[in-house]
């Protein structure tokens, strides 16, 4: 399942009912935000414009120091909470460390579905994101990134559908929502 950028982790110890969905990328500012918005039905248009994306309250809004912060985004129609997470430049290694903590005996809690959002957007969107968040060229970088993401929206929707499918499959083992 990890080859598709989706990984379901069952915490060690007593498992609670429910499921948590975490979209992760570099800084939790662009790709994961748009994926979470699609997942939660906040970006309903089939072909959203760059302006629709910029209008998302949390688009291009995080700072570098907050990389590693887990942001709660809402509860989806299945009743499961959705989060976004930035893991920085070495995200695969960082995810390995984060996931290994969940497998410490007695950790408990509900299963967590990690979905990597960054590969779903093109290099232009990444460049725009870096210009805005890293190099301070906010207005140019933000609009470049939003326009590039709008062009990749079909790919993002396809990816979110795959995540929803994985979520439904995982929900068979975890029928009761965490929050409702």
């Amino acid at each position: 399942m990890f080859s598709s950028g989706i990984r379901l982790i069952y915490p060690s110890g007593p498992t609670e009912a429910g499921l948590r969905v975490v979209y992760y990328c570099y800084g939790s500012a662009h790709s994961s935000i748009v994926c979470a918005a699609i997942h939660l039905g906040r970006l309903k248009e089939e072909r959203p414009s760059a302006r629709d994306i910029i209008r998302l309250a949390d688009f291009d809004a995080t700072d570098t120091w907050s990389i590693g912060t887990l942001f709660f985004k809402g509860v989806d129609d299945l009743g499961y909470p959705v989060y976004t997470l930035g893991l920085g430049p070495r995200r695969h290694r960082a995810l390995q460390s984060v996931a290994s903590l969940l497998t410490v005996p007695g950790f408990g809690g509900s299963p967590i579905l990690f979905a990597e959002a960054l590969p779903q957007i093109g290099w232009l969107a990444r460049l725009g994101g870096a210009m805005s968040r890293r190099y301070g060229q906010v207005s140019f970088g933000r609009s470049l990134s939003a326009r590039a993401i709008a062009r990749h929206c079909a790919d993002l929707r396809r990816f979110v559908r795959t995540v929803r499918e994985a979520e439904r499959r995982a929900a068979i083992d975890a029928p009761t929502p965490v929050l409702s």
């Binding site: 590693g68 997470l85 930035g86 460390s97 984060v98 969940l102 967590i112």
Partner: peptide, 25 residues
């Protein structure tokens, strides 16, 4: 427990704290 985090240490430790919120610890 032990592990080597390399340059990702500050990011991972911050994330750990958040995930710990979901655990029984």
């Amino acid at each position: 427990y032990w592990c080597g985090l390399g340059a990702s240490a500050p990011v991972v430790v911050r994330a750990w704290r958040y995930f710990l919120q979901f655990s029984l610890f």
